[in-house]
Design a protein around this nucleic acid. Structure first.
Lengths: 253, 253
DNA sequence: AACAACTGGGTACGACGTACGCAACTAGGA
DNA sequence: TCCTAGTTGCGTACGTCGTACCCAGTTGTT
């Protein structure tokens, strides 16, 4: 954010005096995304983006207050690729599955999303659209406060798992080894750990767990289904209403 | 990771030839944490850490292969502050609550943890200890593969919520405003959004939700209890076993 | 025609991580 | 005991980054 303004979304793109601008926020955003996709987030520097557009670094600051704001623009732009429907379908489970899988797809297509420490959920248009869909999907008798918890749980799960998936892939790529060679490389350390006998659960994970041997798709789906089962159990039934939060002071700015 | 080695944990601190080392990994790690706590992660640069120890930047590289490895060391060191018990208590709900709340406490004490999207959960000693405790706590008849999903759900929830909490605090601090003034500053944008009428769920959040008006502690606890309720519903009962994942190829390196 | 508001973009500053090199030091093998 | 190989602390240097500041040129409004 630019300091004196709340967020990039409150700063209009242009007024209408001087020369016609040669570029646009969208154009710059798309260039930045292209670079980040290809060479990583760090590669999307102001100089590099400008160079790709055929201009100088400082020109970009006529369009965007800072690089951080540009990252906000990139994030929201990419959320648009989720192509979330206008309204929930009425089947909450299908809708949440859609959110989870499209989030994963978008993060996999733009791995830098995982590296982007996403601070304040900046309220860009696409983020808002997504929020509407998500909360709307859960609008089946759940109190609004419980929706927060359930959606934080769902997106927390998704983001964590996908982040791990992506970072592992990055690790492999960075090492230049095949996954098998990489595994072999780290095997001595793991067996040393196991030999100490101090880590019985870790041992069971290494020996018994089937999940790590499944395809990433199947891993994701299996876990997601467990999460959705959990959410199902939290939906209100006549005899089991979801508990309301304790009353809060009704102060509103 | 230093490139030719798997991770910092596989690289021993020293061999025993030349002059006696003047510092140690722990010493450097603690200095870095001190700086990051006080002035943020970016402030913990190699130069600054070295200066605080009274030496030159390049000296640090005799102890740590790269700054990224130092970040791994910092993370694991700080996890030690969670003071996780040696073994689960037998009350899974109490144990998971403990993990959630101590994680939150540690992240709040070291806000840079939230900005650290650590690639690959690097298997440091404290991380391993925590894993043992967490998986051990859930070892009440749940298949090991389901534990992954449930724990990813829990830690995903915790990390997401605490990250938001911390980043909002940072935002406020960075703006130099009181939370009230900050709210007032962003009010026009929000009311503009509401006036469009395109965001009915967002409107309900702004108008009806009580959670945002509760103390951060209460917000966290309310959501955490919802998550734990969910986990409770996933625990096996005689008539409702947790589904195993589909079989995977039994290949093991 | 004059002016104010804007434009693209060059230069410069103070950071950053870290490759490289070197003198000083210390341990194991002779 | 002395050599020498390995390691120490650390200064210098390189290429990168975000962006503050400046200025000449362009344009809508008066």
């Amino acid at each position: 954010m630019s300091g004196d303004d709340v967020s990039i979304w409150a700063v209009p793109e242009r007024q209408g005096r001087g020369p016609r601008p040669a570029y646009s926020r969208t154009q710059i955003t798309e260039a930045a995304i292209r670079i980040a996709d290809a060479d990583g987030l760090d590669a999307a520097s102001m100089r590099r983006i400008a160079a790709d557009l055929g201009t100088g670094a400082m020109s970009l600051y006529r369009y965007v207050p800072s690089r951080d704001d540009l990252l906000d623009l990139m994030t929201d732009h990419v959320l648009g690729e989720m192509n979330v429907p206008d309204r929930p379908s009425g089947d909450w489970r299908a809708d949440l599955t859609l959110i989870a899988e499209r989030t994963r797809a978008v993060w996999r297509a733009h791995p830098w999303m995982a590296a982007l420490h996403r601070p304040r959920a900046s309220l860009g248009p696409q983020r808002l659209r997504l929020m509407e869909f998500a909360f709307g999907a859960l609008d089946v008798g759940v109190p609004i406060d419980a929706m927060f918890a359930l959606l934080d749980m769902l997106t927390g799960y998704v983001e964590r798992v996908v982040r791990d998936e992506i970072e592992w892939k990055r690790e492999i790529a960075h090492s230049g080894l095949t996954p098998e060679r990489w595994m072999a490389r780290s095997a001595p350390y793991v067996t040393d750990l196991l030999k100490t006998g101090d880590y019985p659960m870790f041992e069971r994970i290494v020996m018994d767990a089937q999940l790590p041997h499944m395809s990433p798709d199947d891993q994701f789906r299996y876990g997601l289904d467990r999460v959705l089962d959990c959410i199902a159990s939290a939906l209100p039934t006549p005899d089991h209403p979801t508990p309301d939060p304790p009353d809060a002071l009704p102060d509103r700015p």
